Simulated scan of single mutants.
Amino acid sequence: MCTPLCSQFSWHRRHLLLTLAGGAVLLAGCGREPEAPAQPQEFDAATACALDGMLLADYAGPKAQVFYAGEARPHWFCDPVEMFHALLRPEQLRPVRAAFVQDMARADWEQPRGHWFDATTGIYVAGSRRHGAMGPTLASFRTESDAAAFAARHGGKLLRYAEVTPELADLSGGAMHDSRM
């Protein structure tokens, strides 16, 4: 059971890790040529999720991609929940160059393509009635007004990137209950 001090430490540790993720890229590049800024890519029918091998094109809802330092290709995630799960794990130490999610005010929920933006600037809706690849999802939006309109229609709570907790990135449902895998 976590005490208030433990909970406070956990909160501070998570925010420190999120803050340092961007700074780690600068430190990792010391003495080397800087890497070109990462640009979002588009997935195709064969693009698989880095965590569980699910094909992104087979599932509705927002997707995510993460570029780690020293790697030219993104690691794909079939849901922002998986992206946050990967980034918020205590053992995640690889410097992150960039993370992108889809603006679900612009992308088609059933077959999302394009409309990528910097995940750290996004507004997320947790607890809505709309599901993504992993079941309950964190719907991603570029603007707070679009996220609020989505929440008014489908329920949920608005969160900024730094407000997403490891508890919200729980993967105990989703893929474990997917009969298509």
Rank of each mutant, 00 (worst) to 15 (best):
L93E: 11
R89E: 14
L20I: 06
G174M: 12
G22F: 10
G135S: 09
A151Y: 01
T143P: 04
A126F: 06
T137F: 10
A133G: 10
Y68V: 03
A175R: 12
R129V: 14
A147Y: 01
G70E: 12
T137W: 08
H154D: 00
H131W: 11
S145H: 13
P80M: 15
A60W: 01
T19A: 13
H85L: 02
T121G: 14
L88P: 08
H75M: 12
A64S: 01
L27V: 12
L26M: 06
L20H: 05
P4V: 03
A60D: 00
G114A: 05
L17I: 00
L168W: 12
T143M: 06
G31I: 12
M104Y: 06
E167K: 03
S145K: 15
L18A: 01
F100K: 05
L17A: 04
H85C: 05
L5S: 00
R73P: 02
I123P: 04
L87S: 04
F117Y: 11
H75W: 11
Y59D: 02
E33F: 05
W76V: 12
A38S: 14
T165Y: 07
D52G: 14
E33V: 09
T121E: 13
A64V: 01
P37M: 09
W11C: 02
A152D: 10
S128P: 06
Q8A: 00
D52M: 09
R113I: 08
L55R: 12
L88F: 07
M54F: 13
H15I: 07
G53Q: 08
M181P: 01
L93R: 15
H85V: 06
G22P: 05
L171Y: 04
E82L: 15
R73K: 15
D178T: 05
A169I: 01
T19Y: 07
F67H: 04
W76I: 13
L138R: 05
S10D: 04
G127H: 06
E91L: 05
D103A: 15
H15D: 14
G155R: 11
A86H: 15
G127E: 11
A57Q: 03
H75Y: 12
W11I: 01
A119G: 06
R160K: 13
L5H: 00
T19E: 07
R153E: 02
H15N: 15
E71S: 08
D79I: 14
E144T: 10
M54E: 14
L171S: 05
L93I: 06
A24I: 00
G61E: 00
D52E: 14
L87D: 10
V25P: 03
L5I: 00
G23P: 02
G70Y: 11
A50G: 11
H115Q: 10
F84G: 05
R160D: 03
G23W: 06
V66D: 09
A126I: 09
G53I: 03
